[in-house]
Design a protein around this nucleic acid. Structure first.
Lengths: 336, 336
DNA sequence: GCGTGACGTCGAAGCGCTTCGACGGGGGAA
DNA sequence: TTCCCCCGTCGAAGCGCTTCGACGTCACGC
């Protein structure tokens, strides 16, 4: 193994100079720096990660905790993870993957052994048991999602409340007066996952504000469940003309169900979704939607973490504004 | 930070004794070990990962390279990753996540900086550019999937060829004589991803062996494409009664397409799939399938790696035998 | 009774890097 | 001219852990 002393000897400088040339923490003359770089290239030098972490107490590794629970759309998680890895690499950091399963112990372990410098936690619940731990840990962390009491924590997410509102307002603008929200599976609400509830809040608030008739329907992520909800809506709310869907796997089956029940979309029924754009745009009928910008959230989380690691202050809450894209599934209310 | 010398002092022993009590690499008396454990507990000692890795040249971290390309079913990747993390944790190792995007450089970097002890590479292609690198690296690695020349490498995967055969043989047993394979998107074949081609080989070989009429149809993973293939099959191969699907997202849409074209499954057409069990079992009509056992492959990969790290020899090729589960989508050929 | 191991423990020497204090030399200010 | 300070570099001291050789003790076989 080629080490820093080898590089130093080859370049005719001391090891500390090599270190400074690499880190830029002290000024090094242009000429020396070039000699060092050349030596590194020739010898194929790679600094030893462990040695570095020991001496500098920085591992340049971030922990990412991913959820694996029912009711979470897996591709979104994956895309998010990928964006975290990519962003982290852009800041010369690597990413250690942890599963929710290990719980707080896993977080504690990687933080306290100095395996990682900082933590990203996904799928935060309103009263997440990991919150006290995250507050107590000496490493910075960023949460994806908002707990009930975000004090002292750094959180980032799509503004789901606003997303719910935006969907309703889009429907209002198109003249719809009776709307429904088809939401995530019941267990997601029971678990008190913030984002699902926030959509409901936004949806309801906007509906109330505009004097709409509205209802909310949690729903399992199966075609059969979609069919049932569609039938129920048709039966109980015959005047319904606008639907907001916040349940990725259900999007396509639900539209299918409406159509097979004789409702044309968007002719009889306008459908708008809160879902990843590439999903909403690729359904048989492209769906008007508020994008769930996993990549931006991931990049944002890494950015916040880097700032914290750099000692800079960051806002406690970062809410990404919803962006609605009109596609083929919404239209003016037919006055027939 | 509490360190090993603190523990040693508290337990009235030397630091090396603490280390040996922890690692078990030398015999330590029961009594001393208990005192050490107690001291660790009381002080809340956590060994510093970097120091450990420096002194022992073992980081206890594995690298996992995940693909993010078109035509790969994301949930499978995710499930696989989770199983790798879980298995690794069972062996006291953590997992560093790398994206395909970084390519060989990423592998080289984490290996040469001693950030990781070993590597797991997913989505290996027949002529994967990373193969020479993996052979040259001084760290052990395991590939998920088989390249054209696996010499000197350790590979594990479902035996996709046998899976193709098993599907055909199941159809043969049910009396079907005209069969088709609906496969992965064309780009997967172009890329020379081993597993897709192997299914085709197995399918074709078994069909030939049994004197069947057979055909192969790569297909995009969209409902529209499913519809087109279904129409094409109906038109060009009217005697068709058995279909093998090797394309996860297509499974449900394809069956829908057949039914909407007037073919009853399994009445007129038997469908069998190569797909994760939880997908095949959860379609509207549960589909007879050969399971793609991501969890087992992941656990197996970790197991192999641990053996290699332990200095033990391992087989170059590990092929998991296909297991076919009968569900509602296959039936005896109707002789009507 | 004495050699021989095995057992249990200790001390010290690193592992390869970063960082702190120090120092010589040169330029600007007084 | 003198003083000061900054620039660029060096040497040495760790960072916290593992591991190797050594050593005393005890039990056993001859």
């Amino acid at each position: 193994m080629v080490k820093i002393t080898d590089v130093a000897r080859h370049a005719g400088v001391s090891p500390s100079t090599v270190s400074y040339a690499l880190s830029g923490k002290r000024p090094i003359s242009e000429e020396t720096r070039l000699r060092v770089q050349e030596a590194i290239r020739v010898l194929g030098y790679r600094p030893h990660a462990g040695a570095r972490s020991l001496a500098s107490s920085r591992s340049n590794v971030l922990a990412l905790v991913v959820p694996l629970r029912a009711g979470i759309h897996v591709p979104v998680v994956m895309q998010f993870a990928v964006s975290v890895v990519t962003s982290a690499r852009g800041h010369d950091h690597d990413v250690l993957l942890l599963t929710q399963e290990e719980g707080g112990d896993g977080l504690r372990r990687v933080a306290e052994t100095a395996l990682v410098d900082a933590l990203i936690v996904m799928d935060v619940q309103l009263h997440d048991p990991r919150l006290p731990l995250l507050r107590a840990l000496d490493r910075p962390s960023v949460l994806i999602g908002f707990p009930a009491e975000p004090d002292g924590l750094t959180c980032i997410d799509l503004d789901f409340k606003a997303a719910g509102e935006v969907c309703v307002e889009h429907l209002v603008r198109l003249g719809h007066r009776v709307v429904a929200l088809v939401g995530s599976p019941p267990e997601v609400y029971v678990r008190e996952t913030g984002f699902a509830q926030r959509v409901v809040q936004g949806f309801t608030a906007a509906a109330t504000r505009h004097g709409l008739s509205s209802s909310v329907h949690p729903c399992e992520a199966t075609p059969a469940a979609a069919r049932l909800v569609a039938e129920q809506l048709l039966r109980e709310r015959p005047a319904l003309t606008g639907v907001v869907v916040h349940n990725e796997p259900l999007l396509e089956p639900l539209i299918d169900a409406f159509e097979s029940l004789g409702l044309r979309v968007p002719g009889d029924l306008s459908v708008t979704a809160i879902a990843p754009a590439e999903l909403a745009a690729r359904t048989r009928l492209p769906v008007t939607s508020v994008d769930v910008p996993s990549a931006e959230v991931g990049a944002g989380a890494v950015e916040l973490l880097m700032r914290k690691l750099g000692g800079a202050g960051v806002p406690e809450a970062t809410l990404l504004p919803p962006r609605l894209t009109e596609r083929a599934s919404t239209a003016c209310r037919s006055l027939a």
